[in-house]
Simulated scan of single mutants.
Amino acid sequence: MFASVIAGVDGSAESLAAAEWAAREAERRDRPLRLMHAWNWHPREVDGESANAVQRHLARRVLRRAEERVRRACPGMRPHDEQVEGPATAALLHAAEQADLLVLGSRGLSGFTGFLVGSVALGVVARATRPVVLVRAGEEAEDEHLPADDGSASTRTGYRDVVLGLDLGDLCDEVIEFGFEAARLRRARLRVVHAWQAPSPLSLGPGEVGMAGDSQRAQEWQGFLSAVLQLWRDKYPDVEVVESVSEGKASTTLIRAASGAGLLVVGHRLAERPVGPRTGPVTHAVIHHVGCPVAVVPHE
């Protein structure tokens, strides 16, 4: 059985946009779509049973709305919907283990009916072992495509660029492959971006001398990036690749590069930290500030 694309839904505008984006992605990948709603179980007492019944009813309504949204956008799609008991982060992480991709709204409702609050989405991204895509409210099919000649929105034009952010000091095949595959599926151009910063006197190790100028450093990084990508260019000959290196903070560079893109792909190293799993500063920044969907690809 093929792995599925899963969309977590809670009835918010963000999660409905995520469900529609997930349906389009499932069609591109030729994968089944699962719509999932998580709710918290209450103890089996009279009040608990009543609360559980209410939550099941609300979950059915949320899933029905998401399914209607999906079928309007992708008439041929027949999603499978399911309710799961929370906590939401744990339920979504468990489901994602067997998924091709997990898609969530980047913000959500708080309170009784919603579960995709910021802490849940960030918790899933920090711990997921499969790729997670975060989608903002208002994301439409036309937003993935270039504007028509008259400047109007269209789904008949080619796809916008896929932007792949690479840290050349922490390379991972899974992240690169995800970016190339996303571009291939869309027949889109892939823009690969790396940001570097000149070493400061405090960051130089014993015996190291910061002699190279910025121009030389830029050329060295460009050569390294080209060498890394050559294998992938050979593997994906139909994908047009544009590569660039720039001096500056990685988060600022990626946020700027993602302007006008259809998808941003970044990596996330799975590492237990003293305070538990967390997203790194670059991932955290792009999740909060990039307008297009963001794919976070975990790696060891």
Rank of each mutant, 00 (worst) to 15 (best):
L146S: 07
D150C: 14
R187N: 12
E208R: 10
A128H: 03
G205R: 01
W221Y: 11
L190S: 02
E243N: 00
V193I: 12
A195F: 06
Q222T: 13
M211C: 08
A227H: 04
A128E: 00
L116Q: 11
L171T: 09
R184V: 01
D161Y: 07
A121C: 15
P237W: 09
L164T: 00
E220R: 12
F115W: 05
G213C: 15
Q216F: 13
L146V: 09
G207C: 04
Y159G: 08
H145L: 14
D167K: 01
G223W: 07
P131N: 08
V163F: 03
P237I: 07
S244Q: 15
G179F: 09
H194M: 14
R233D: 03
V133H: 00
G165K: 05
T157W: 14
L146F: 08
R127E: 03
L202D: 09
E144F: 10
A212E: 13
L202I: 10
V193D: 00
D170V: 10
G138H: 04
G207T: 05
E140K: 14
G114N: 06
Q222S: 15
L204K: 04
G123Q: 03
S226N: 09
L229Y: 00
D173I: 01
L225A: 07
F224D: 10
R217S: 11
F115H: 06
T155W: 10
D170Q: 09
V163H: 00
A195S: 09
L202K: 05
V192R: 07
L134A: 10
G138K: 04
L204W: 08
E181A: 15
Q216G: 12
D143T: 05
L146Q: 10
E142I: 02
G169L: 08
G169R: 10
V117Y: 04
A182P: 01
Q230I: 03
E208N: 06
E208G: 05
R160G: 06
R233P: 04
W221Q: 13
E139R: 11
G151T: 04
R189D: 10
Q197C: 13
L116E: 07
P206I: 01
L204Y: 03
A183Q: 04
D149E: 15
Q197N: 12
R184G: 05
L146N: 07
Y159T: 09
R184A: 15
L122C: 11
E142K: 06
G158P: 01
G223H: 06
Y236S: 12
D149T: 01
G158K: 06
I176Q: 03
G207S: 07
L231C: 11
L146P: 08
E140L: 15
E174H: 13
L229K: 02
D238H: 06
R136V: 08
R184T: 00
A148E: 01
C172V: 02
L122G: 11
V163L: 04
T113C: 14
D173R: 01
V192M: 06
V117R: 13
S154D: 14
G169E: 12
E174Q: 14
D150H: 06
F180S: 14
V228Q: 11
V162F: 11
L164V: 01
R187Q: 12
R156G: 11
A137G: 05
R233Y: 01
